[in-house]
Design a protein around this nucleic acid. Structure first.
Lengths: 219, 219
DNA sequence: AATATTATTTAGACAAATCTAAATAATAAA
DNA sequence: TTTATTATTTAGATTTGTCTAAATAATATT
């Protein structure tokens, strides 16, 4: 099955949006891909033809098992390149997403596997997301919740679920990265903000908007 | 100037074919790019519009100075990725051309320069071709001739001018790679073949067809 | 339940890159 | 120099991926 770059991007985005088993809506996918709903409908027909998705009009989109397999390969390539860029070329973690977005489309199993080996077969990418292995198996992520929903007070940052440069740069400025330990001081309900404190740092306040993208686990 | 992948491939091929200052013909370019002459004419008009080539109908194609600049950037990326694949991912030199063909289209100066640094700013790629620096300056290649035209007898292989997997695999099988030292035993005129001998190896015979792609210099 | 709103799809168009077949120009051969 | 051959271009079609505007379906509101 030979996928175009456009098809790969659709598959990847469907995979990303398809939390649990609910179908992905045309609108959500259009927003994610920065395109128009009409274009999504067009592409949905093609991907259904290729048996990569299940799609009936007005019913949303679900990956087929072939589609899921393809998605995992793309995600694997993306995350391995992110590791390469951060570990070997010394990029900072918020810079690498867009570059990996391009590198991921070089479809060579041999290259992917050699790259993985070169990097020491990493299991997590620089954002803390798990890297599928050559067979598409995903390591079970350790239990984590978003910062705005946890009850625990002392936490460690395990992942960031929004890859946008803006957010990652923001976190960088605040000194928050993977593995950063922090303490929740207070939730303020009236403006949905959270007051947190990093070690050896004054307390800072972050919005729920930001907090929901920071994944943490108790420490 | 933002070039599409197709445009980059044209620019690169024109650069490759434009030995000296003679214009590249529509047919030659079509053959090189494995496409049809009509398609070349179409693209020539676009590239002229973008001022990357000089082109008048029936007169062939020459790179403009902008075009040459673009070509050197593409060549730089291609050759750096080849180094990466051979030096770091342990690919053999005949495998890397096609992969580099894809990787070269990731247009990020920062990535290119970091990659170069990571590799120790190499000056030659695994095939012995010089790598343009960040400003597009090409190191002057050391004097070399093709194996079928030299007068010297004891030689060292400095480059291979045909990147086809077939030729590179053939050379590999014969034990010929960059830096290999060899001795010319005889030229046979009646079938244009050359008898050569590698150190600690029995003599072998190769055709002029092959020899003309092997660049050497006296040792 | 009727109406308004939102989501989705269809129809038709467009740009990029390619192709085939036919026309024209340049070059080589007689 | 006329004719044949080869190279190149044009005209028109095709594919992929996208778009806008209009139509239709699903959902929410009154």
């Amino acid at each position: 099955m030979n996928l175009s770059v456009a098809e790969e991007n659709y598959i990847k985005s469907i995979y990303k949006l398809q939390e649990g088993d609910e179908a992905v809506s045309t609108n959500a996918l259009a927003y994610e891909l920065d395109t128009k709903p009409a274009s999504v409908t067009d592409m949905a027909k093609k991907l259904k033809e290729k048996k990569l998705i299940e799609y009936e009009k007005y019913q949303g989109i679900v990956l087929s098992s072939d589609g899921r397999k393809a998605a995992l390969q793309i995600v694997r390539r993306h995350r391995l390149w992110e590791c390469f860029l951060v570990d070997k070329l010394l990029f900072s973690w918020e810079e690498v997403h867009e570059l990996a977005e391009e590198l991921e489309h070089v479809r060579s199993e041999k290259l992917t596997n050699r790259l993985s080996e070169f990097l020491g077969n990493p299991v997590l990418d620089p954002h803390g997301d798990p890297i599928p292995d050559a067979n598409g198996k995903l390591a079970k992520p350790r239990p984590q919740t978003s910062l705005d929903q946890t009850n625990a007070k002392r936490l460690v940052v395990t992942a960031v679920t929004d890859q946008s440069t803006a957010l990652l740069a923001f976190l960088n400025a605040k000194g928050i990265k993977l593995g950063t330990q922090l303490e929740i001081l207070a939730h303020y309900e009236y403006d949905n903000s959270i007051e947190i404190k990093l070690k050896q740092q004054p307390a800072i306040t972050i919005s729920e908007q930001v907090a929901k993208h920071i994944m943490v686990r108790p420490v």
